[in-house]
Lab assay of single mutants.
Amino acid sequence: WVPDSEAPNCMNCQVKFTFTKRRHHCRACGKVFCGVCCNRKCKLQYLEKEARVCVVCYETIS
């Protein structure tokens, strides 16, 4: 899990986070992404309901 303080930009597209461009943690890899790069949901083994995942993890999992 990457702390918010260590991620000033999206770890995929590099967009800078602001008050309106929020950070989202991928529940699969723990990296920090913008809403566009972390907009998929899928079922993870260790969680009961679907969770937010990044586009890279989504392609790997599904």
Rank of each mutant, 00 (worst) to 15 (best):
W1M: 15
W1A: 02
V2H: 04
D4T: 11
D4H: 03
S5A: 09
E6D: 11
A7N: 05
P8I: 12
P8L: 14
N9T: 14
C10Q: 02
C10A: 01
M11V: 15
M11G: 12
M11W: 09
M11T: 06
N12F: 05
N12W: 08
C13I: 00
C13K: 00
Q14I: 08
Q14P: 09
Q14Y: 04
V15D: 06
V15C: 09
K16L: 10
K16P: 12
F17V: 02
T18P: 03
T18V: 06
T18K: 11
T18C: 14
F19N: 14
F19I: 13
T20M: 15
T20F: 10
K21Q: 15
K21T: 11
R22L: 11
R22Y: 07
R22P: 08
H24G: 02
H24A: 03
H24W: 06
H24C: 06
H24F: 02
H25E: 04
H25V: 07
C26P: 01
C26T: 00
R27H: 04
R27D: 03
R27M: 04
A28C: 08
A28Y: 07
A28P: 03
A28L: 04
C29M: 01
G30V: 02
K31L: 09
K31C: 10
V32W: 03
F33G: 03
C34W: 01
C34L: 00
V36F: 14
V36M: 07
V36G: 13
V36S: 11
V36E: 07
C38P: 01
C38F: 02
N39Y: 12
N39P: 07
R40H: 13
K41G: 10
C42G: 13
K43T: 14
K43A: 14
L44D: 04
L44R: 04
L44K: 04
L44F: 07
L44N: 03
Q45P: 08
Y46R: 10
L47D: 12
K49L: 04
K49H: 12
K49T: 10
E50R: 09
E50I: 10
E50F: 05
A51Y: 02
R52A: 05
R52N: 04
R52S: 08
V53E: 06
V53I: 06
V53A: 13
V53D: 03
C54W: 00
C54F: 00
C54N: 02
C54G: 02
V55R: 12
V55F: 09
V56M: 13
V56W: 12
V56F: 13
V56C: 06
V56P: 08
C57D: 03
C57P: 01
C57F: 00
E59A: 06
E59H: 06
T60P: 14
T60V: 06
I61S: 14
S62Q: 04
S62M: 15
S62G: 12
